[in-house]
């Protein structure tokens, strides 16, 4: 549903987005991860034509965004929740969007209820908190129930309950066949929401793949009554063993089943056997540090 190819943005001689390419398929939530200034928001703005690209192309539903007959009905976008007129009420803001997209006014009440802003709908947006503005932005993006959602840092200002709700919303959207691109610097939020990760650093895509494969496995942690004996047996079988915390052994690159087989063959009694997985934070820093 979203195809980005060779997208590049230069300001003067400075390249802020460098040859970014990816394709987002329906039914998936993709996390767009990167440190501040990595080029996430610029990539999103170029995808929607808000910022002209220096090179490359972006297609939504097979067309450049500007060529979509009614873009708001195809892609719901939240890039900057503060981009609203503070003098309008939440309801007026959404009514204007609804009339532009061409959805009935009753849909405004539905999305207001969906984001729990019904009670504040008649208040001016200038009096909204950041979280309320964020929810108003999400409501605007959902007006036409579009097949594609592109949210930039949607959890900013949301309380834990709101973040959980949003996670359910995005997962539910993907489960109904929708395409979701979620940019965030909140690693926990991304780790629990997305199927796939796009990691950008220094304007370049440094990793692209399913969450599970990117997080990968670092080996196995095993705890035995006779660690020295188990270490010797594992080493004899060619495994690389190093000491872990509190007497545990770390078997680098090994699956728990392989370690368990060696332990069983040697008659070792185990009190712990678990895979070691890198956290998203470790992956993030290792990928973006070099960029």
């Amino acid at each position: 549903m979203i195809t980005v190819s060779g997208l590049t943005k230069q300001y003067g001689g400075r390249t802020v987005v460098d040859d970014v390419s990816f394709t987002l398929e329906p039914g998936t939530v993709t996390g767009f991860l990167g440190p501040n200034g990595a080029g996430k928001t610029t990539t999103m703005r170029m995808t929607t034509g808000l910022v002209p690209s220096t090179a490359g192309s972006a297609f939504v539903d097979g067309r450049p965004y500007a060529a979509l007959p009614n873009p708001g009905a195809v892609m719901g976008t939240l890039i900057d929740a503060s981009a609203v007129h503070p003098g309008r009420t939440g309801r007026t803001h959404l009514r204007l969007l609804a009339d532009t997209i061409g959805v009935p006014a009753s849909r405004v009440d539905e999305v207001l209820e969906l984001v729990a802003l019904t009670g504040a709908a008649r208040r001016r947006i200038g009096g909204y908190s950041l979280g309320m503005r964020q929810r108003l932005g999400i409501a605007g993006a959902l007006l036409a129930d579009p097949p594609v959602l592109m949210f930039d840092e949607p959890a900013n200002g949301l309380d834990p309950e709101g973040i959980r709700w949003m996670r359910g919303l995005l997962r539910g959207h993907a489960a109904r066949g929708g395409t979701v691109l979620l940019s965030s610097h909140l690693l926990g939020e991304v780790e629990h929401t997305v199927d796939r990760l796009l990691v950008i650093g220094g304007g370049r895509i440094v990793a692209d793949g399913p969450v599970a494969s990117l997080l990968g496995s670092d080996g196995t942690s095993v705890r035995s009554a006779d660690p020295a004996g188990l270490a010797a047996d594992l080493a004899a079988k060619g495994f690389e063993v190093s000491p872990g915390d509190d007497g545990a052994l770390v078997v680098v690159g090994a699956a728990p089943g392989d370690v368990g087989a060696v332990a069983a063959a040697g008659g070792h009694m185990l009190s712990e056997l678990r895979p070691l997985q890198r956290g998203l934070e470790d992956v993030f820093f290792s990928l973006t540090a070099a960029a």
């Binding site: 007959p69 009614n70 729990a116 129930d145 309380d159 539910g172």
Partner: peptide, 20 residues
């Protein structure tokens, strides 16, 4: 934020083109 509706109660039909 108490609701967790993930789909609209009925299909939302938006205009196919931009407004006149």
């Amino acid at each position: 934020m108490t609701t967790a509706i993930v789909s609209p109660s009925r299909p939302v039909v938006a205009r196919r083109t931009s407004p006149s």
